[in-house]
Design a protein around this nucleic acid. Structure first.
Lengths: 207, 207
DNA sequence: TATTCTATCTAACGATTGTTAGTCTATTTA
DNA sequence: TAAATAGACTAACAATCGTTAGATAGAATA
């Protein structure tokens, strides 16, 4: 048996290929428009073989949805954790924005599949994604309230609304930004500037 | 022939019911998941009758997509036009935000169908929607460059990026905001405040 | 009144859907 | 070596899909 090599059962690779193929197809065509035969073909299998790894189409999409959020969650929470405990509000929020966007485009198929098809998936799949979603929202609520506690965020801001605005605008970049044509870091810098300081001159506008 | 009464051919009402039903179903389930039989049933017809009014499912979705944008365009351009010529940057942008959101929720089925299914619709339907989309983007570019010309917007702001951030975040409200539980005007005020002035204290953060 | 048009219906077409059952082969375990 | 398991295949199922053809009833027109 020699050294402790991690086993790689052959089926594990197929399972991953099925998920990758499903994520990309769901992102491009929506949930219902993608047949199991199309997923199987893209993964290099026959349609029947998919059922060895997953019990149903719903089971596949549920896993795709969860992976899409979990990977962003991990990237954001990991990088936030490396910040010094006394990091200021701008640093906290900027780090969150940069790493949300990084993960969005690094795991593009899963994340944009999630953003695009969540509203059109069978109820059970949506419910299977709820817990993961809420956890990620909670992560951002922590980041934002920590930023506000450090005094860097205006008192009048509705943090829940800001979180929705923030994540909504970041996720919408999936519809137009091409990471091959521009750096994600630059996009993050630009978005963070606008969201943190607004676009008006003379630092005013609020009564 | 008496007074000039606008004719109401019976089929016109059916056509409108088909579009209304299709918009609501597309918004809820996506494009491919909605069958013509479901659209017909929701409109009170048999499936074959739909083909008297539309040549194909693609033709229906193309019209739904276009109506979704045209109605927002009309609302925004009309209200912007009523502003005094020397309106300041904050007023211009705030008016645009408020009326984009108003139209979004007033024509909910069409607008959220557009936001949700645009990426998953057959190529020809997407192309049939391109011109209308570009026109609406142009309207916002006019609003923003007019605001910047009046000196109210920071010079360093990338107006195209700001437009994308803005419209992206506004459209994302369709996924969570319920106009029955809160006033759209309040939502608009909240979003405009954040987008115009940012969330940081001491008007700083930008180098 | 005779004819045409409008708007709908019914019934069916071939294609495709998610899923299942049964079979085969290669690998692992006993 | 014998038995069991993992992983894939083929073939078929009932259901549903978008679409079409033809029939039908009432309204408008001549």
């Amino acid at each position: 048996m020699g050294v402790a090599v991690t086993k790689k059962p052959k089926g594990t690779a197929s399972r991953a290929r099925i998920l990758d193929a499903a994520a990309a197809l769901f992102r491009d065509k929506g949930y219902a428009a993608v047949s199991l035969r199309a997923i199987a073909a893209a993964a290099g299998l026959q349609s029947g073989s998919v059922y060895y790894h997953f019990g149903s189409k719903e089971e596949i999409v549920t896993e795709v949805l969860n992976l899409g959020i979990e990977r962003v969650h991990d990237q954001v929470s990991t990088t936030i954790a490396t910040l010094p405990v006394d990091a200021d509000a701008a640093t906290l929020i900027k780090t969150g924005i940069r790493n949300h966007l990084k993960a969005l485009f690094a795991f593009g198929a899963y994340t944009s599949a999630n953003v695009r098809i969540y509203g059109q998936v069978p109820t059970s799949a949506r419910q299977g994604n709820l817990a993961v979603r809420r956890e990620y929202e909670g992560l951002w609520d922590d980041i934002l309230s920590r930023a506000q506690a450090r005094g860097g965020v205006q008192g009048g801001i509705d943090l829940a609304a800001f979180r929705l605005l923030l994540i909504g605008s970041l996720n919408a970049t999936l519809e137009w930004f091409d990471p091959q044509r521009g750096r994600v870091e630059d996009l993050a810098e630009c978005y963070a500037d606008i969201l943190l300081s607004g676009v008006l001159t003379h630092g005013g506008g609020r009564q």
